[in-house]
Design a protein around this nucleic acid. Structure first.
Lengths: 208, 208
DNA sequence: TGTACATCAGTGAACGCGCGTTCACTGATGTAC
DNA sequence: TGTACATCAGTGAACGCGCGTTCACTGATGTAC
């Protein structure tokens, strides 16, 4: 049952996509290789023909999810440059909190990833740098450096989503409060950047 | 083999303490009831005599760990009132990053907890309120309310530890950078509180 | 205080189950001539 | 272009293993009299 190179590559991509979605939804330890293969329309044997172990697939799935997430961030606006507010609006939202399957994989599996191997950690670090780089480009001068604020914002956004999801079942009000609070406080960290200032002061209530 | 009420209560407490430590270290899904019972010096049957399921034990272990963590926070200083800097120094440190077994359970298992039941979520929410309350008491007036900053700081601290642990294997420098950056940026969120200002300006370099 | 006995915390064998991984096999692909 | 055949992606049965949970049993505790 050999398939064409193209089909094989597509199967591989399908396994990664499916794994990314399921790992985020149920946790890496919460999904079996059988579930992943089945939902990708293959058998687990095919999965092992493509990946040497579940952990190797996990590292690839994490990298894929992060790539997807940072791409989504950069695509928030076309034409004009993105602002910190653009990024925060999309990341710190009830929508992001509730779409775990398509959302940020660090927020979905962050504390699990800390226990996986170096390959997984490498994917993770790449994602963190991706986020921080995107944030940094939107920041202006302030008491702390742009790099410092970018890293702090990255950590804070992830923490806010983790916390908002964790408390959601027991205390939905607190969950929303965490998102809103993080949104407002982090929005203040822009610094004296014309792009930020324009959006939060000049265009407030403007038609365009 | 019935034991005294006191012994039974002690066994229960031992199971909770052991579970809290092991769950934080290996993840909730990463530890079996056999491991927990064995390390507490009992059999898994005894565990089921005390808790109706592993998830019920998980909720109790989480609550225990959070209680321990917030107690530790409030005990950072005796006599004088704690400042934001006191809390941040102890929470945003390499020591906390590397002591997962005795550290904050939200940072250790945050993203796993989001998939557990309402009892677990309730423990989680209690812990978040505990942290936020402690932070709030140290804050002064600023552009955002004390409550908002307290919640944002809570989320940011957790996110920073999760991220620092996640990238540690692949990129130790980035890991430290995240902690330091979060420490500096969050330190700026104190507001016009005399306790904060005194510590960061007046006593800088002073002997006492 | 002393005796009889119900209680129930803890034991350990056993349960079915799903896990990650291996492997002999299949048969279409794609290459060598 | 046509034929022969090596390759190898994918199949599916089988592996040992550890999981969470159940349950008949034990025997010291602690209560009723």
């Amino acid at each position: 049952m050999k398939v064409t190179k193209e089909q094989s590559a597509e199967n591989r991509a399908s396994l990664i996509r499916t794994a990314s979605r399921l790992f985020k939804t149920y946790g890496i330890d919460g999904v079996g290789v059988a579930d992943i293969s089945k939902e990708a329309g293959l058998t687990h044997g095919a999965l092992y023909a493509q990946f040497s172990s579940k952990d190797v697939l996990a590292a690839e799935a994490l990298a894929h999810g992060l790539q997807q997430s940072t791409a989504k961030m950069r695509a928030v606006v076309k034409e004009r440059e993105a602002t910190l507010d653009d990024y925060l609006d999309s990341l710190l939202s009830k929508k992001h909190r509730d779409s775990i399957a398509s959302g940020c994989p660090i927020a979905a599996s962050g504390s699990e990833v800390a226990r996986k191997d170096k390959a997984v950690s490498r994917s993770f670090a790449g994602g963190v740098e991706g986020y921080a780089g995107a944030f940094e480009a939107t920041l202006g001068p302030a008491a702390t450096t742009e790099r410092e604020r970018a890293l702090a914002i990255t950590a804070a956004v992830i923490g806010a989503i983790v916390v908002a999801r964790g408390v959601a079942k027991a205390d939905p009000e607190l969950s929303e409060e965490v998102i809103t609070a993080a949104r407002r406080v982090l929005g203040e960290l822009g610094g004296s950047n014309p792009r930020i200032r324009r959006r939060t002061t000049l265009t407030k209530g403007a038609t365009n």
